[in-house]
Simulated assay, not measured.
Amino acid sequence: MSTISIAAPAVRTVRPSTRLRLTVRGRRVLLGLAALPLAAGIAFAALGGGAAVASGESVPTASFETVTVMPGDTLWSIAESVAPNADPRSVIHQIESLNALGASSLQVGQELAIPAEYVD
């Protein structure tokens, strides 16, 4: 009689995947690829920065005179005294803008810049 033997199929063990090893050349290539966005940004800044160069055109300067605030003075009274023929509201607005006044509170002895167009 013949015998039949049943054996379990042979199981092959799968070796873990090979670990990636970089050569010196591979490291240089990887470093170059990583540095590429930085190099592009520096090149863009260097080439595009020329637009910020001064154009050489003259810039109008603000000319003004100063007035010292006396006791009892208000912006309205100062505006009426320096520009009697102009609308005091527009003169006050220009004085506030020129002196960076926020709350329109004046101090005695304070120096206020008055636009030169209103000074004699």
Rank of each mutant, 00 (worst) to 15 (best):
E57H: 13
S58I: 13
S58A: 15
S58P: 03
S58N: 07
V59N: 08
V59Q: 08
P60I: 06
P60H: 02
P60M: 02
P60E: 02
T61A: 13
T61Q: 14
T61E: 08
T61Y: 01
A62K: 12
A62R: 12
S63T: 10
S63C: 00
F64A: 15
F64I: 06
F64P: 07
F64N: 05
E65T: 10
E65K: 02
T66S: 09
V67M: 07
V67W: 12
V67C: 04
V67H: 14
T68Q: 13
V69F: 03
V69E: 11
M70S: 09
M70A: 15
M70E: 07
P71H: 05
G72H: 08
G72M: 05
T74P: 01
T74M: 04
T74F: 13
L75K: 11
W76N: 03
W76T: 08
W76P: 00
S77M: 05
S77D: 07
S77K: 15
S77T: 15
I78M: 09
I78F: 08
I78S: 06
I78K: 13
A79K: 06
E80N: 11
S81F: 04
S81P: 01
V82F: 01
V82H: 03
V82L: 08
V82D: 00
A83W: 03
A83F: 10
A83L: 02
A83C: 04
A83R: 01
N85F: 02
N85M: 01
N85S: 14
N85D: 13
A86T: 06
D87C: 00
D87T: 07
D87L: 07
P88M: 04
R89Q: 14
R89A: 10
R89D: 09
R89M: 02
R89T: 06
R89N: 10
R89G: 02
R89K: 10
R89S: 11
S90P: 00
S90W: 01
S90T: 13
S90C: 00
V91C: 01
V91G: 09
V91I: 08
I92H: 03
I92S: 00
I92Y: 00
H93K: 11
Q94M: 11
Q94H: 08
I95Y: 06
E96I: 13
E96S: 12
E96F: 00
E96C: 13
S97A: 14
S97G: 12
L98H: 02
L98D: 01
N99K: 09
N99V: 05
N99W: 03
A100E: 12
L101K: 11
L101M: 15
G102L: 14
G102A: 07
A103W: 11
A103G: 06
S104D: 08
S105E: 15
Q107G: 07
Q107E: 14
Q107T: 10
V108G: 12
V108H: 01
V108M: 10
G109H: 05
G109Y: 02
G109K: 11
G109Q: 04
Q110I: 05
E111L: 13
